[in-house]
């Protein structure tokens, strides 16, 4: 772990690891809340979606990756918000101060690149705090995991769809 910055591990977890995590949390959802119970559909969809992202983050190495760590942290916050309403809502703004933008664009890199990179920061969990090169590295890994997640979910949908 100490020399993690030398060899960047871009390995993506195997599909079945994610699938296992996901199926497990889906069946947990069923136990907690039988899916034919009169629960709001939007809530159910939200829970399934959350289960998918959490499973992906866990399968991707939990807290070893910046994006998965950020995602898990965000998810647990979200969970607290659902369970106890009393939690004070802290507003996190992802907007970049003009001062920061100015600093970044004064780099040697083209200002346009930095502008798009700022946009990218909003799409990658935890991206707000990343250096540009780190951001790109994490993005590459995030994309790989995300497309795998979509594939697994599609398989599941296909498998469950009436023939």
């Amino acid at each position: 772990m100490a020399s993690a910055n030398k060899t960047i591990n871009t390995d993506v977890p195997a599909k079945d690891i994610f699938a296992l995590h996901f199926l497990q949390s889906l069946s947990n959802l069923r136990i907690q809340n039988p899916l034919n119970s009169p629960e709001e559909t939007t809530d159910r969809v939200k829970k399934i979606k959350m289960a998918a992202y959490i499973s992906m983050a866990r399968a991707a190495g939990g807290t070893n990756r910046l994006w998965s760590r950020a995602l898990l942290r965000r998810a647990s916050k979200e969970n607290n918000k659902i369970n106890r309403f009393s939690r004070r809502k802290r507003k996190v703004t992802w907007q970049i101060s003009s001062e920061r933008r100015g600093r970044r664009s004064s780099n040697r890199r083209a200002p346009v690149v930095e502008e798009v990179a700022e946009r990218l920061r909003n799409f990658v969990p935890g991206g707000g705090g990343m250096e540009t090169s780190k951001l790109m590295e994490e993005t590459a890994h995030y994309i790989k995991c995300l497309s795998m997640q979509v594939k697994v979910m599609q398989c599941l949908v296909d498998g469950l769809s009436p023939k």
Binding site: L26, R30, L35, T41, R44, V45, K46, I48, K49, A52, Y53, L146, Q149, V150, M153, Q154, L156, V157, L160, S161
Partner: peptide
């Protein structure tokens, strides 16, 4: 992911 979550919810 949004769409698939919706479909999964329906299917389940």
């Amino acid at each position: 992911v949004d769409d698939l979550s919706e479909r999964l919810s329906e299917l389940l």
